[in-house]
Amino acid sequence: MLADAIAAERFRLLRDRAAVFWGFCFAPLVGFALSIGGDLFLRFVIKKPIPGLTIGLIDQVLKALSNGASTFGALFLMIGAAAILAGDYRWETWRLLTPRNTRQNLLLAKLIVVGEAVFWSLLLTAILSVFAGVIGAGINGKALTVSMAGRNLFDVIGVLAITWLEAMTLAALAACVGVLSRSTMGVVIACLGFRFVQTILASSLQMMEQNEAPSWKLLALPVFDADLLRAALLAPDQVGAAGGSAGVALVVLLAWVAALTAGAVWLFRRQDLTKE
């Protein structure tokens, strides 16, 4: 049963401290450390605090969450995803699991647990960005407010969901690559490469398509879709002609996740595990 496989995979991840720390805690902690470091630098090195500056806590959270699946964030998320999705090839432990549950359940459980871990990682990012805002305000004597731009908790939930979906396109790709390459390193390199190429392509295409509705090429890129959805949620009047494509962007993101997941399951069900 799928629920059994999820329970087993969750139990296992919680005991894999290296995967939990490097995959799902390190990037949020680095973000937190950099934020505090910046405030300390401003206070003790530059020694010129900006007077009258106010920090919007929700704005800080939204900014941190928007970058949750950036290339830097994706690198670490994929390290964690690789440990979950391709670890059994590395440790040759499929022989322990495959006789206990169906192939489909085993792989879907892994992907679901990656999704859970990504969610908790983004939540940690959000919480640490609040702490960073509060501590930073204390260091530099800045004023604190809930939001400078009138944002609310629903915006936070929306951005978290969009970034989570963006990260899950990479996780689903990681599942495919993990099955094909049987390698944790292969997963990290392929997913990071995919993320990086998307960023370059999206920037180039956006420059070419200024002030126009996005083409299908641009909409096919999950990175662009996620950016478009976040922009449509937070600043709909600034999105311009692209605003009408937000629905398509959401469908494309979901389609990426569904297609890659189905592909990974299809491949895994047909794969010979001759030494694993």
């Binding site: 087993a8 139990f11 322990l96 699991l97 206990r100």
Partner: peptide, 11 residues
């Protein structure tokens, strides 16, 4: 933990 994981996997 290994046995626990396998027991969970088997329901």
């Amino acid at each position: 933990d290994t046995l626990k994981m396998l027991a969970l996997e088997s329901g």
